[in-house]
Structures are given as C-alpha cells and as structure tokens.
Computed example of a mutant assay.
Amino acid sequence: MGQPIPDFGKFLESLRGSMSLREAAKKSGLSHAYIRDLELERNRSTNEKITPSPDTLQKLSLAYDYSYTDLMIKAGHLAEEQTFTETASDTSSIDLSAIHYIQIGMKDILYCNQEQRVTRNINSLKDFSRFLDLLDERDYKKIDTDLYVNFQHIRKYDERGGKLYFDVEGTGPALTLSALRQRKYHELILRTIAKNNQTCLEYSFGTVGSGTAAVVPSE
C-alpha cells in the first residue's frame, strides 16, 4: 500500500470542479451524499474517517475523466511497485481489437469473442490500473460490474431487453446492459451500430417525449 496525498478529499472536490454533486452522482452511479462525504474524508453520520475503495475510485475516474491509476496512487491504494504475489501471465499478447468483450475477475481477466475464450492472470495492481485506462482508449465501455464491451464489434441492439449482439441478425450470444449503462450509452450505441453496419439513423416522433431512433440501410 502507498500513502494517500494530503487533503485527498479536497483533491476529489477539485476534480469535480463546477459539476454539481447531483450531476457527479448521476455520472458515477454513486450517491451525491456519499461523494460529499468522500470530499470531506469523513462519514457525516458517524464522523468516522472514510477512504474510497478501488471500485469507487474507478467510478469517479470515469465520471471525472481522470486517470484511474493516478487516483489509486493519490488515494494510497497503490504504490509504484505494488504487485500481487502470484506469478502472472502476460496480457500484451492479446489483440484487443479482435476481442468482443472482457470480463474481469478478482485475479484474472477473461477475453472473449466468437472463436475463443482466453484467461490471463492479472500481473499487478499497477498494470491493471493502466489496463483499464487502455480499454477506454480502445473504445471499450463498461456495461455492468466488471464487464467491458468493445463497441467496435456491436452489430445489433435490443433496446427493450437492453441486449447487445455481435451479429446483425441478433441470433448469436448477447450481453445485457445494466439499466444505468443503458440510459448512459443509448444514443452512443445507436450511432456505433450505424457506423459498424454502414447504415444510417432515422428518427421518428410521436407524442411528446416518445421519440425513437432506428437503424436503417444507408442510401
């Protein structure tokens, strides 16, 4: 373990900037009260000192668009040379562009596409933090707890069921989005599928608030 920086809570507050607590809560999936407690570094109900968990930091990293690795270090969860004691396999041999989705466990990572399922051990907490940053750079999105999808491979979206498919017909394996991620990524999914299938978006509007979008072949 490392040492947290002085006034880590104030640092979190500076990352939030002009964003309201409720807006930060909506983007992170955390409660606005808990975010404020983290900024004050204490539970206001019990007055006990609190430190955000790695999972909480990951949510704040996404909400504030700030490096997860740096947050882990500044919070004291990660020292520069901290590693797991287990011998780990190299994940650099995996071609992330060919992977459909990734499921992350406590000590290993499962890479999946239609042809293969490959498991690799997590090398170190430091490397894992950088790995999460890399997923974001490669257009992977978190759709549920510890489940990341390569949006470049999505071909069909069942909005009613919240399911993503990797084939146009929607007959193959599907992944289900959490309700929070479905609301967050709805428009992005539609645009991505249109791009992946070389189709275009067509909007139709009925009563107020009932506008829907469909993917149709481009001319």
Results as ranks from 00 to 15, higher is better:
Glu13Ala: 12
Ser14Cys: 02
Leu15Phe: 02
Arg16Asp: 03
Arg16Pro: 04
Arg16Phe: 03
Arg16Tyr: 03
Met19His: 01
Leu21Asn: 08
Leu21Pro: 00
Leu21Ser: 07
Glu23Trp: 02
Ala24Lys: 00
Ala24Met: 08
Lys26Pro: 00
Lys27Asn: 09
Ser28Cys: 08
Gly29Asp: 10
Leu30Ile: 15
Leu30Glu: 13
His32Leu: 07
Tyr34Asp: 07
Arg36Thr: 01
Asp37Cys: 11
Glu39Lys: 04
Glu41Pro: 02
Glu41Gln: 15
Arg42Lys: 15
Arg42Ala: 08
Asn43Arg: 11
Asn43Asp: 15
Ser45Gly: 11
Thr46Ala: 01
Thr46Pro: 03
Asn47Asp: 14
Ile50Arg: 04
Thr51Lys: 13
Ser53Arg: 05
Asp55Ala: 15
Asp55Cys: 00
Leu57Gln: 03
Leu57Ser: 09
Gln58Asn: 13
Gln58Met: 07
Lys59Gly: 00
Leu62Asn: 11
Ala63Met: 10
Tyr64Ile: 02
Tyr64Ser: 00
Tyr66Leu: 10
Ser67Cys: 05
Leu71Ile: 10
Leu71Tyr: 08
Met72Ile: 00
Ile73Lys: 13
Lys74Glu: 03
Lys74His: 08
Gly76Pro: 00
Leu78Asn: 00
Glu80Met: 10
Glu80Ser: 10
Gln82Tyr: 11
Gln82Glu: 15
Phe84Cys: 01
Ala88Gly: 14
Ala88Met: 09
Thr91Val: 10
Ser92Gly: 10
Ser92Met: 12
Ile94Trp: 05
Asp95Gln: 13
Ala98Arg: 13
Ala98Met: 12
Ile99Phe: 07
His100Asp: 14
Tyr101Ile: 09
Ile102Pro: 03
Ile104Met: 15
Gly105Asn: 06
Ile109Lys: 03
Ile109Gly: 11
Leu110Ala: 06
Tyr111Ile: 10
Gln114Cys: 02
Gln114Pro: 01
Glu115Arg: 04
Glu115Gly: 08
Val118Leu: 06
Val118Arg: 12
Arg120Phe: 01
Ser124Ile: 03
Leu125Phe: 12
Phe128Pro: 01
Ser129Ala: 15
Leu132Glu: 02
Leu135Arg: 01
